[in-house]
Simulated assay, not measured.
Amino acid sequence: MTILHLETSTKNCSVSISRNSELLCLCEEYDNNYGHAEKLHQFVNWALEGAEISLNEIDAVCVSRGPGSYTGLRIGVSAAKGFCFGLNIPLLSLNSLEILAQSQIDKGFDLIIPMIDARRMEVYTAKFDGSGNQISQIEAKILDESSFREWADKKIVFIGDGVEKSKEILNLPNASFIEGIHPSAKNMIRIAENKFAQKTFEDVAYFEPFYLKEFVAGPKKL
């Protein structure tokens, strides 16, 4: 199976192509200005060139459904649906937190807690065991000094762009805080292939991003 993976839930615009569990090519860039609309299709073209395959060889598209940036998610999902409609291939989706968690599986942690910044002291988060299995619901959590205190005896790793603010207030003796890790299309391969094998496909016509929270427009910048 050959799968095109699109990850646009954060400031990291990421595209990869895999074939039978092998990463053929990865194109990604972290951009504070959210340049996904300009970059995503160029990254797809570069990934196809790097993998030395044509778009017609793609068997499925896997996209991050969120939570995360409203704009980023809309861009990624719209592109994924367009490819699936145009090529008549199935659509797969993963949540952005499970993609983050894949970067830390089997590294000796009891808990993997990815965090995506949701502004102020709020993050999108969920808990995963050391093998990357999700063990709690995704939530929008406001952080304070008591957050995750019930897990203080566990060896925890916090990852994602919510780490910078969380490490300032969380006092957990067994916790590690790793900055600079973002959801990446290279970490979508294993779960996407499992879903493809099980034919866990999305309805392309009705599929929408998982925003978790309703969009609230801010004041217009002058």
Rank of each mutant, 00 (worst) to 15 (best):
T2Y: 02
H5D: 04
E7S: 08
T8I: 11
S9W: 01
T10D: 06
N12D: 01
V15D: 04
S21W: 04
C25V: 04
L26K: 11
L26V: 14
Y30P: 00
N32R: 13
A37F: 05
E38M: 11
L40Q: 06
H41V: 13
Q42G: 00
A47H: 08
L48N: 04
E49V: 09
A51Q: 06
E52Q: 15
N56A: 13
E57T: 13
V63I: 15
V63G: 03
V63W: 03
S69H: 06
Y70N: 05
R74K: 14
G82E: 12
F85A: 03
L87Y: 09
N88R: 09
L92H: 07
L94F: 06
S96I: 07
S96Y: 04
L100R: 03
A101N: 05
K107L: 15
G108L: 13
G108N: 12
F109H: 08
D110Y: 06
D110I: 10
L111E: 09
I113N: 01
R120Y: 05
T125Q: 07
G130V: 11
G130D: 11
Q134C: 12
E139H: 00
A140V: 09
A140K: 02
K141C: 11
I142V: 15
E145N: 12
S146W: 00
S146I: 02
F148E: 08
F148C: 06
F148K: 04
R149P: 00
E150N: 11
G162W: 05
E164Y: 10
E164A: 14
L170C: 10
N171W: 00
I178G: 02
I178A: 04
G180I: 13
G180N: 11
I181K: 07
P183M: 14
A185V: 10
K186S: 15
N187T: 00
M188N: 07
I191P: 01
I191F: 01
N194K: 14
N194Y: 02
K195P: 00
K195G: 00
A197M: 10
K199P: 01
K199W: 01
K199H: 12
F201D: 10
F201W: 11
F207H: 12
E214Y: 02
F215E: 13
F215A: 15
V216W: 00
A217N: 13
P219F: 07
L222P: 03
